[in-house]
Design a protein around this nucleic acid. Structure first.
Length: 326
DNA sequence: TCACACGACCGCCATC
DNA sequence: AAGATGGCGGTCGTGT
């Protein structure tokens, strides 16, 4: 890479320090791993160039105010505040809009997506955020297609990620895009993290993993569905698996996970189907069978319902972009 | 695209 | 007495 890539990391008040530092660290490690001059120039930006108290109390010191951080900026990453951020001042929104408009790519980590939404940059885009805030994001910005199940999502120039450690995965994917797989792998090794998180979506799907019950019948049912998505999973058969009545399974399942049984089964199947669409060229019929939807009609209906796009649209959009990452 | 049938969900109440 | 469980049935969403 010829010129250094200017990356601006925007640090909001009450920032989550692990995310802000993690982003920084991945790019910095890439600089160390690359042969020759550093690939990245990092700008740590805040509204004012004064110390920012992070959510844990750790003080972060930005090196530029937004007034000083002027374009050209190649990549803008908005770090997240803890929880849903307060409405941003117009000055900040204007800066974000201006920088995003000229940047090669831009995005946010975790609840930083709310700031993008306020700036009007999520319209009609596929985005994700921390699972806990996904429904609120979707409510506030109804034109954004919020997918709570993903570690991170790239939609054109826009990228968003789930919470905390997902910021590292996101940053690593940007490094891979810029500097190639080998270097990204070297960075991952150095930081003792995975370039590509292993295991099924079941294990690492943020949404599902965080809503997995501890032990007992509900957990067994979840495991069974995860391991055998292609089987038929009626409430009756699952109740039998769990050794309880249908009524009781319904009740304890919602109590433990916050989801209805049917909802969970569908979420698992959607994960499987999505992964197969992204990572394989298998025909829809086959994916419908393997994911447990059974027919392409049902598969399609679920995609439209949950993601707002049909399976083939989804594949066209994400296959090349995510084939080797995430 | 539509209508219809069926399963899932969940409030309510009885029972253990 | 109180919490867990199961049955009933109205309503709704989904599959065909």
């Amino acid at each position: 890479m010829e010129a250094r890539v200017r990356i601006a990391i925007l640090i909001p008040p009450n920032a989550h320090p692990l995310e802000a530092a993690g982003l920084s660290e991945v790019f910095d490690e890439a600089n160390r791993s690359v042969s020759g001059p550093p690939a990245y120039q990092l700008l740590h930006v805040a509204l004012e160039a004064t110390p920012v108290r992070s959510s844990s109390g750790l003080i972060l010191v930005p090196d530029h105010s937004i007034a000083e951080a002027v374009p050209p900026i190649d990549t803008l990453v908005i770090a997240a505040a803890y929880g849903i951020p307060a409405p941003a001042p117009p000055l900040l929104l204007g800066w974000v809009q201006e920088v995003a408009a000229q940047a090669r790519r831009f995005g946010a980590v975790c609840t930083g997506a709310f700031l993008l939404g306020e700036a009007g940059l999520l319209e009609g885009r596929q985005v994700t955020t921390h699972w806990q805030y996904a429904s609120e994001l979707a409510r506030r910005f109804p034109n954004a297609m919020v997918d709570p199940d993903r570690i991170y999502i790239r939609d054109g120039a826009l990228f968003t990620s789930a919470g905390v450690s997902a910021a590292l995965d996101l940053a690593l994917s940007l490094v891979e895009e810029d500097l190639g797989r080998d270097l990204a792998l070297a960075v991952a090794r150095q930081l003792v993290m995975f370039l590509k998180r292993p295991g099924g979506q079941s294990q690492y799907s943020v949404h599902l993993a965080t809503q997995t019950a501890e032990r007992g019948p509900v957990q067994r049912v979840q495991q069974w569905v995860h391991d055998n998505p292609q089987e038929e999973h009626s409430l009756a058969t699952l109740a039998q698996q769990a050794g309880t009545s249908e009524r009781n399974l319904s009740r304890i399942f919602r109590q433990a996970t916050g989801m209805a049984v049917r909802e969970f089964v569908e979420a698992v199947r959607l994960d499987v189907a999505r992964r197969l669409l992204e990572e394989t060229g298998l025909p829809l019929k086959r994916i419908a069978l393997d994911s447990g939807f059974g027919t392409t009609e049902v598969l399609r209906a679920a995609f439209i319902r949950r993601l707002g796009v049909g399976p083939l649209d989804y594949r066209a959009r994400f296959q090349s972009a995510t084939k080797s990452v995430q």
